[in-house]
Computed example of a mutant assay.
Amino acid sequence: MPVFLGGDANVYGMARSFWESYRVRSVAFCKRALPALAHSRLFRAVVENPRLEEDEVLTSLLTAFARAHPDQVCLLVSCADGYTLQLARCRKALAPYYRFACPAPGVVQALGTKKGFAAACAARGLRTPQSITLAPGMPLPTLPFGWPIIVKPADSPAYWNCRFAGKRKVYLVQGQTELEQVVQQVAAGGYRGNLLLQEYIPGPDTALSVVNAYCARDGSVPWLVQAQVLLQERTPEGVGNYGALLLEPARQDGALLEELRTLLQTGGWRGFANFDLKYDPRGEPVLFEMNPRQGRASYACTAAGASLARPLVEDLVEEISVTPPALQPMVWHTAPWGAVRRHCPNRTLCRQAAALRRQGRCRCQLLASGEGVSRRVWYLLRQGNYWRKMQRYG
């Protein structure tokens, strides 16, 4: 029985992967369930508890749940950054009741945080954007790189819990005055962590790429899948997330994937990892971060024939070697297809994706087959609202 920590679209994609691969329904534990889980038949239960980020609460709830289902193998999967670190801290208490793949806390800090990831990449000669850390209350530094710059929180879980008008996942800042305004706005919104001021890597949405990886119990990394971005989200809260992806065997950057495989192996990672990157104008990959989980768009891998459920089951339940992914060409999207067609900046890629779609090689993220009327109505309303957001933010 899959048990997920989280309540967003990533959880829905994982539940869909398990349903399509094994015809099992899932359970989710979260502080607050987002609309992505609304009215879904893929879940036995969605358990909300506002104190779930407290270790004692998490272990108590999960232990009680596993004890109530002694006849089933409970497979525990983190679907959010904060939960991965929490699972690492609670691993000894949960190990008698669950099977899960999670690195030790020190490894999460070394690779699964923005600062640690940049240091690990530098040690291996992998390029990341030039960055400066700005602590709360510190004066703005002199930048060693030009404008515009990217501003984003160094502590993603803490920032996720903040609520304020104009909040963005990342900020593209054009100058000093705007930077001062952003710093003040984020502080007023309740965020007390460090900010990262990063070099901006120019290029359209289609220069972006995403890689999902699975690291097995024996330390090997047999499963890596890369996807080409067709469209990035446009809304303030969605910038940095993906609206559409193209997956094809020919789009796997073998040299990059081998570098990432080595990075994970030498770092001692276990379980899923997710890399966001961009190819600069010279075609060189620049790694932005490694999320200590599968990506929010990772159902795209399942859609393309590389189920995210299978490496977990093979590694942790069947205890056999993980089958390497065998990709088939596929288009994945969460944005309405009309929005993808209108806003994708590379018309050649868009035509290739449209041709795959006409062949039936296309999956939308949030509507699995077999969902009921309530879910379908919710989905249609959600897509209509997406159009309105696209018209507003363009």
Score class of each variant (00 low, 15 high):
54 E>P: 15
106 G>P: 04
231 L>F: 10
63 T>E: 14
151 V>D: 02
170 V>M: 14
266 T>E: 13
282 R>W: 04
137 G>P: 07
310 R>F: 01
312 L>G: 04
37 L>C: 06
139 P>F: 08
81 D>I: 05
190 G>Y: 07
307 S>G: 07
263 L>W: 01
317 V>F: 05
353 A>V: 01
338 G>C: 14
66 A>P: 13
97 Y>I: 05
336 P>M: 05
55 D>S: 07
205 D>H: 04
369 S>K: 05
13 G>M: 00
285 P>I: 07
262 T>K: 05
354 A>Q: 03
70 P>F: 03
225 V>H: 00
216 A>V: 07
51 R>C: 06
139 P>V: 13
254 G>M: 09
258 E>W: 06
291 N>A: 15
333 H>G: 05
59 T>H: 07
36 A>N: 01
41 R>D: 10
342 R>I: 06
6 G>W: 00
386 Y>F: 15
70 P>I: 02
323 T>E: 11
393 Y>T: 05
153 P>D: 07
352 Q>K: 03
271 G>T: 09
35 P>Y: 05
119 A>Q: 10
122 A>K: 11
127 R>V: 06
58 L>A: 04
198 Q>V: 03
156 S>T: 06
17 S>T: 06
158 A>E: 04
302 T>H: 11
391 Q>K: 13
164 F>P: 02
222 P>F: 02
26 S>P: 07
74 C>W: 03
250 A>E: 08
280 D>W: 01
115 K>M: 11
316 L>K: 01
222 P>S: 15
55 D>M: 12
379 Y>I: 09
291 N>L: 13
224 L>V: 11
234 R>K: 12
357 R>S: 09
255 A>H: 12
345 P>R: 00
372 G>D: 14
310 R>Y: 06
361 R>S: 12
392 R>G: 10
341 R>T: 10
184 Q>R: 14
358 R>S: 11
289 E>L: 09
378 W>G: 00
281 P>K: 02
383 Q>G: 14
193 G>P: 10
61 L>C: 10
200 Y>G: 07
69 H>G: 13
51 R>I: 00
289 E>C: 15
181 Q>L: 06
331 V>F: 08
279 Y>E: 12
327 L>S: 05
92 K>Q: 12
161 N>V: 01
382 R>L: 11
45 A>Q: 13
167 K>S: 09
237 E>P: 14
393 Y>R: 09
82 G>N: 07
255 A>D: 09
256 L>D: 04
43 F>G: 02
137 G>D: 06
81 D>G: 14
28 A>C: 05
82 G>Q: 15
273 A>I: 05
381 L>S: 03
392 R>Y: 10
345 P>S: 04
122 A>G: 15
191 Y>R: 08
191 Y>D: 08
246 L>N: 01
106 G>F: 08
88 A>C: 15
139 P>A: 12
84 T>D: 09
218 D>Y: 04
90 C>V: 14
35 P>H: 09
154 A>G: 13
111 L>K: 01
381 L>A: 12
169 K>S: 14
122 A>Y: 09
179 L>F: 00
334 T>D: 12
111 L>Q: 02
141 P>V: 03
309 A>E: 03
43 F>S: 09
26 S>L: 00
265 Q>A: 15
7 G>H: 01
159 Y>V: 14
34 L>Q: 03
301 C>F: 08
18 F>N: 01
157 P>L: 08
39 H>E: 15
328 Q>T: 12
323 T>Y: 06
110 A>M: 08
238 G>Y: 08
159 Y>S: 10
211 V>K: 00
